[in-house]
Simulated scan of single mutants.
Amino acid sequence: MLLEPNLTTPFPGGGGGSCPPVGIQLEGVILPPVFTIDVILGLLGNIFALWIFWFKLKAWNTNNLFLFNLVIADFLVLVSLPLRIDTLLRGYWMFGDGLCRIHLFLMFCNRSASIALMTLVAINRYFKVVHPHHYFNRITKQQAAFVLLFVWLLVISTWVPILAFNHIKNIRNNTQCFFFASYKEDGSTIMVGTYRILTVLEFILPLAMLLFCSIQISSSLKKRQMGKLAKVRKAMRVCVVIVTVYMVCFLPTTVTTIGLWVIRSYRPWDCNAFYTFTQLTIASFGLNFLNSALDPIIYVFSSTMFRRALLGALPRALRCRQDTEESTVSSARTQSTTQQELKSMSADSGSEAIS
């Protein structure tokens, strides 16, 4: 997809020899079923999420605006992946130069936008819990819309150069749509280097922010009083879910990208290492777009209004059962809180008697 697996990869040394082409066999075997699962689960989850956001939510807040834009980011890749699935099964690209450019542009934008929006959701939760009186918690929906506009402009401007180049290559009498091959054959490595740097930076920097938010919320969880524990625990669950989805979907691609980068730069003669990381990179692409199928889990954990709308959309029998379970859990929590308060009062009375 983003590599040039059909091209012979030149490696200096060894008498000017080169590693034979990797071939598309592995890509054609692994990715079609993985991408198909991504598309099916992603469409089911995000269409349902879109229906809830559009028709069921009676009030919108900044958090729901961030989540709604994450749904839009998911649709960018969900409408693009079927083209790649068809190409992998068919063995060649048949949709022309224009769709090739749009296809690659949407896939890159999905990754960047998803990472940025998940980070926004976590930061929003961090401020509400750790700094409840901060100005960030008082921004209006209009101001949140400007934040989102800035994010989208940043993402689009980063990857819009892809639309300016022709990515169609005729390889062994087959038309292919590759990103890297276009620039390497033209003798330019600017976009390739930019892609590698962005792939690493857009993973590491948001990850640092996500971990910071999680650690701060966890610290706040230990300091808060009983009455505020539920809010902090909910925020902690949100961050844990976001970090988990983030690591599962984006860590493998980042690691394999760095691996290929290092091998091409410092071990150009090591064909075995190159093949290994190429295969790992191909396999990681399936996980890279799995976030579109997993993001609905983030919606459920991140938005109370979304969760209530989801419960309201369930069949009555399931809804009644869920209400009963929530009532039982709520009663247990109330009882536990009351017991702890009584114990605290008892301890206070005992200390007064001793004094």
Rank of each mutant, 00 (worst) to 15 (best):
I354V: 15
V121G: 01
L221P: 01
L294Y: 09
W51V: 12
Y126R: 10
L117R: 03
P132I: 04
P82V: 06
G259P: 01
L148F: 07
I115L: 14
L57T: 12
P5E: 09
W269C: 09
E4V: 03
T9Q: 15
S80W: 01
K222L: 15
F35R: 01
V243M: 03
A293K: 09
A347P: 02
A309Q: 06
A181F: 04
S114W: 02
T62D: 01
G96H: 08
S349R: 13
I215G: 03
L89I: 09
G17D: 10
Y299G: 03
S327F: 13
H103S: 14
V248E: 02
I217D: 06
L318V: 10
F179S: 08
V232L: 05
S292N: 07
L251Y: 05
I162D: 08
D97R: 14
I156M: 03
I263W: 00
E202I: 05
L120F: 14
L104Q: 12
G350S: 13
C109Y: 00
Q335H: 05
R333V: 11
G96P: 08
H167Y: 08
F274K: 02
N137S: 04
S292H: 04
V34M: 10
I162F: 07
N288G: 12
V300L: 11
N46A: 10
T158I: 03
A164T: 11
M118C: 15
F203Q: 04
R172K: 03
W261R: 02
T304K: 05
P5D: 07
F75Q: 06
N110I: 01
C19T: 10
Q335E: 11
I204A: 11
G14S: 12
G91A: 06
A122M: 09
M94F: 10
P206D: 06
V255D: 01
I115S: 05
I190Y: 10
H167A: 05
R321V: 00
F53R: 05
I215W: 14
E325F: 13
L198A: 05
P268S: 14
M345S: 05
V121M: 06
L314P: 04
P252N: 07
M236H: 15
S114C: 11
